[in-house]
Amino acid sequence: MNTAPHSLRPLGCLKAGLRQARQQRALLCRQMATTTSSTISSSSQTAPDHGFYKITDPKTQRLRSAFAVYSPSAIATSPSALAPLIQPSTSSNPSGALARLIVSPASPDPLPALHQVQIKRMDPTGARTALFAKTRHAARVGDVLMVTHRRGGEPFAGVCISIRRAGIDTAILLRNHMGKVGVEMWYKIYNKNVAGIEIVKRRAKRARRARLTYMRQAKHDMGSVSDIVFAWKKTRKVMTTRGGGGGGQRLVVVLRRRRRRGSRSREMREGVGERRGRGEGGVDGNRLCSCYLFC
C-alpha cells in the first residue's frame, strides 16, 4: 500500500518541471518579441496551454485565465500602449526591444477613464453631471436642494453645504433642521436610489467659500428650509398646470375652464397671466429655479 504514492511521485515531479519550463519559455518569448509577434499572438489566442482551468471571456470570446500571457500585439490595440511601440521603430533588433521595455513610460492613470465609464453607465442622459458641473446654470454651494429618494419616503431638502467632486463618488452635503435638531445628509449624486435632485432656491450671491461649514454655527445657521420648500412647491404646481411639453395648449384649456366658472374667472385669469409673465422673465435670466428629475 505504501508503494503506490512512491511510484507516482516521479511522474508528478516531471509534470511540475515541464510546467515550469513551459512558463519560462513563454516568458522568454514575450521578452524577445517585437517583430515576431505573429507566432506569439497565435499561441495566446489559442489559449495559453497550462494546466489551469480556462475561462472564456463573454465579450471577446477568447480564452482567459489567471495566468494567461497576452501578446504585445494584443496590448498594442489600446492607443495608450501604442506610443512606446512606435517610438523605437527604427531599431527592431532585440536590444532595441529590451531598451523599449526599460524606457517605456508609465501608463497614464487609468482611474479617470474608469470613472468616465462608470458615470456613463450610471448617468446615461448626463443630467446628473450637468447639474453639478462647474457652469453658471449648475447647482452651487449655498443653494437649497431637494433630493427625492427612489425608495419613497419624504424627500430630503436642505442647504447644500459642500460638493465633494470625486468622479463617480461625487456627493453633496445637505443640511436642514428637522424638529429643532440639525440634520446633515451626504448623497451620492450618481446613486440610482436618488431619483431626483431639484434646485429649490438659489443663493442670492455666489458663496465665496467652497464648503460652507460655518453654517453649522448658530450665528450663521439657516434653520429649517421647510418654508422655502413649501413656497417653491406651490409655485411648481402652477408650473405643472402650464405643462412641460405642450404648455401653451394646456394653458388655453385651463383658461377656458376658468372662464366658464363665472365671477371668479377674471381674477384667476389675471393671476395665471401674471405668473406666466414672471416665468417668461425667469427663463432668460438664469436665476430661475429649475427642476431636474432623472428618469
Binding site: 456627493a171 435638531v181 440639525g182 440634520v183 446633515e184 445628509m185 451626504w186 448623497y187 451620492k188 446613486n191
Partner: peptide
C-alpha cells in the same frame, strides 16, 4: 457621528 447607509448616503445629527 456620521452613520453610513447601505446606498452610500450618510446621516449626521447635531446632537
Amino acid at each position: 457621528q456620521n452613520v453610513t447607509r447601505r446606498d452610500g448616503s450618510n446621516i449626521k445629527f447635531d446632537d
